[in-house]
Design a protein around this nucleic acid. Structure first.
Lengths: 123, 123
DNA sequence: TTCTTATTTAAGCAAACGCTTAAATAAGAA
DNA sequence: TTCTTATTTAAGCGTTTGCTTAAATAAGAA
């Protein structure tokens, strides 16, 4: 630290106010950042997009659509599951993944701009 | 990638449909993922949160509030600027950063859940 | 000019990422 | 049981991240 600014115009009141607000919001911000970090990856965001469209998809389907290694897909799914973004349901030997209901309203707006840009008019 | 699934219940129609939708949405999704990746970092999300509250902040202010090295802050700001999320305005020797007006409506909802959790009732 | 302040940049490095390959599970079919 | 399919896991490896330190710019003050 010892980062303290010397500048004259430093508005100590504003700084202090910001520190307070930040301290209160920090836990929430960190939780949000964790979800955004998961969504902030090309492959994973595409997965979420696909899961939002098709209710459920198995590892194999995703690997097929995304043209990627099944193992790579599985590892991405694990991260999403650990982050509580998706959930798994096993049927026989295949595992179906779904967006977690609780986080669906969090994920949906992240893709809102893309959905709208998919309307006939746009693009 | 010879990833093709052999499974019997593979709904070829759904797979094909998903591939089509994905192909159309891919560019938009990648653009969104880039912004989410920037926001999906504790320090940077806090910066955005602070900038949303205080119209503008200089490097030194942010370093002060976040209790971090000025250099580290500056490097985060460069990423945000390169990503078009914030913009810089130099006044004398100090540089003030602001949320880019165009991306403000994209950033704001990312912090919505945190803001609401700050209302008196919550927490 | 020299001195101080504010910010950026370059270099280095440990940690985290994301993919590949290969092996390990799990479950149904022969 | 053995064989095939679906998925997960472990190990390895090159790339990216994010921080630290130190040096380089930029701009005002003495």
């Amino acid at each position: 630290m010892a980062t303290s600014c010397i500048r004259v115009f430093a508005d100590a009141a504003h700084i202090e106010h910001s520190k307070q607000r930040l301290a209160a919001a920090a836990p929430g911000l960190e939780a949000v950042a964790a979800v955004l970090a998961l969504a902030g990856n090309d492959v994973r965001l595409k997965m979420l997009y696909l899961l939002l469209d098709q209710q459920q998809l198995c590892v194999c389907d995703l690997a097929d659509v995304l043209q990627m290694n099944v193992s790579a897909i599985s590892q991405h799914l694990r991260k999403l599951k650990d982050g509580g973004v998706v959930q798994a349901r096993k049927v026989g030997q295949t595992v179906f993944y779904t967006l977690t209901p609780a986080l669906r309203p969090v994920i949906e707006p992240l893709l809102g701009s893309v959905s709208t840009s998919l309307t006939p008019a746009a693009v």
